[in-house]
Simulated assay, not measured.
Amino acid sequence: MSPAPTTDASATDATATDATGRLSLWLRDRSEPDWSAVVAHRFTGELIAGSVADDVMRRYLIQDHRFVDGFVALLGAAIAAADRFETRIPLTRFAAMVTSDENDYFLRAFDALGVTEATRRDTPDHAATTTFQALMTEARLTADYPCCLAVLVVAEWSYLTWAARADGRLPDRFEHAEWITLHDNPFFRDFVGWLVSELDRVGPTLNDDARARVEDLFRRAVAAERAFFDAAYQDNRD
């Protein structure tokens, strides 16, 4: 059974911008213009259209796959830091999806795009990859549930928002189409809705210092997502 959504996670127009209202919407507004640049990025537009060049897709997937380990560790930190058992269940189920369905997609896409294990091993991290990995580590090491949520919400909410733009119209190649459907399907929509609602739930419990830490992580995560999409069009040595 998937967690039930309590907010429209794919909405893009804020209904509250005050810190005493929905924290998620306030944080999203505070992250502009990077948020809008992420969800309407050239890469996601080309992906939805099925026109993204193979070299761009290879570059993107090689780098993105390197987030899996750190992302699962961040989920683990959120599970450990969560304030109640009911909260741990959806996070655990999502971690299982990432390590099964999503990881399987990466391996099949690498084969289809001719990306060998040697290429994956020998390709250096892009600076944008290093930045986002460090940010996930920073959030994880806080051992603080709201801080972990801040980065998790950016990663998943922004992806649902851009993937929903496809509106069910998928490109022909599975390397493109399946990456979209992994980020816009009933389970994922329910999970992201729940995840965003968790950030809103803990919002009123945060003092000024804690809210400032969450805002800082959220805004830097959005900027890191934008830089990561940009990096798909850059040589790894740039």
Rank of each mutant, 00 (worst) to 15 (best):
A134D: 09
T161F: 02
F85T: 15
T129L: 02
A109N: 09
A112V: 09
A139G: 04
T87Y: 13
G76D: 05
R121V: 07
A112K: 14
T131Q: 13
A73N: 08
A81H: 02
L107S: 13
Y145D: 07
Y105M: 11
A163L: 09
L91Q: 01
A134T: 09
L74Q: 03
P124G: 09
V115T: 14
T130G: 12
A78P: 02
W157C: 15
E138V: 01
A127T: 14
P146T: 07
D101S: 15
A118K: 15
V153F: 06
C148H: 05
T129N: 01
W157F: 08
D101N: 15
R84V: 03
F94I: 00
D83A: 13
C147T: 08
A128I: 04
W162E: 02
D125Q: 06
Y159F: 10
A128T: 05
M136F: 06
Y145E: 07
A96F: 03
F85M: 14
A163K: 03
Q133L: 15
R108K: 15
T119S: 07
S158W: 05
C147G: 06
L107D: 13
D111C: 01
A81P: 01
A127F: 09
V151N: 07
E102V: 03
D125V: 00
E86I: 05
E156N: 06
T130A: 14
A82L: 02
V98E: 14
V98G: 00
R93T: 03
L141A: 08
A139K: 02
A73H: 10
A150H: 12
A127Q: 14
V72E: 04
V151M: 06
A155Q: 09
A118Q: 14
D122V: 04
V72P: 02
L107R: 15
I79P: 00
A134S: 13
A80I: 02
